[in-house]
Design a protein around this nucleic acid. Structure first.
Lengths: 145, 145
DNA sequence: ATAATTACGGATAATGATTATCTATAAATA
DNA sequence: TATTTATAGATAATCATTATCCGTAATTAT
């Protein structure tokens, strides 16, 4: 696993730059986001913060995640049941979701900017963000299926 | 607007072929799906069925939608808050969602099959379906913003 | 410094979509 | 005709997310 320290400092710096307060709870959540592998959900992050801050409420987790999202420091992946978050690769990218075990993997495909531009012109929409999700079976579940 | 009758008959035929019962409530829901423009939500469909069948319950709507989904006769578009459905163009295709008024439009972009194949090989996942959603501002909201 | 303002955490409840459970009934089958 | 099965419907449960409200700590202004 990569050293989470640099990313942690990036996130802290980004919060400082915007004059957000670095409360202990917030710092701990940011620490966990930087240290996270994969794509934790809000509930999972909440559970992890609780080990050090037993009174941490859901609302605080959501509030801080919303903050980081607005700062484009965290990518939200909304799935059917809940959302998952990636604070280490906040640029939009496709995801692969296993329909059996719900594992989430990162895809490396990217949208051709020309195609997006064409879609904007054709539809009249101004595109701000995109989400591409593939549903299927992960390597493990393909076998044991 | 296109004549909904042929699509209605297609859906009815598909249900018959699989020996599902054509109850009045079910037929009415199918009729509304075939006649729908855009991408109604389960709640919207429920409200529409209720005008003719005031006792229609949510569960029945969801059950029939799940049935049609499994038959690949209805495309489900899951958004953050709820799902929307397209029973007239059930093949997966991208959607544009307005972040201001929540209007949903169809996109005409398509994924290059070679790119999907490459993603399958690279990730090890077997891809069963995909969902591409663009978030932004619709033409109307771009102006009045 | 002190007072006033603001941001934040936390508790709690509200919301709202979806699903589960159970029962009665209508349809299909034996 | 009897039996089985699918379905509708009522109702409650679940669960993620959001809203509200209050107390407190931090910041700012006086």
């Amino acid at each position: 696993m990569l050293d989470p320290q640099p990313r942690f400092e990036e996130l802290i710096t980004a919060l400082k730059e915007r004059d957000y307060r670095l409360t202990p709870q917030r710092v701990e959540l940011v620490r966990l986001i930087a240290a996270s592998e994969g794509h934790p959900s809000a509930a999972q992050l909440h559970a992890r913060v609780k080990t050090r801050f037993p009174t941490m409420s859901h609302a605080t987790v959501y509030k801080t995640l919303a903050l980081l999202k607005d700062m484009n420091q965290v990518l939200e992946i909304d799935l059917r049941d809940d959302s998952h978050y990636d604070g280490n690769h906040p640029a939009p990218h496709p995801h692969l979701v296993c329909m059996r075990c719900n594992k989430i993997a990162d895809g490396d495909m990217e949208l051709a900017p020309a195609a997006v531009k064409a879609l904007e012109e054709h539809s009249g929409y101004q595109i701000i963000r995109s989400q591409i999700t593939f549903y299927g079976l992960c390597p493990e579940c393909r076998q044991s299926g």
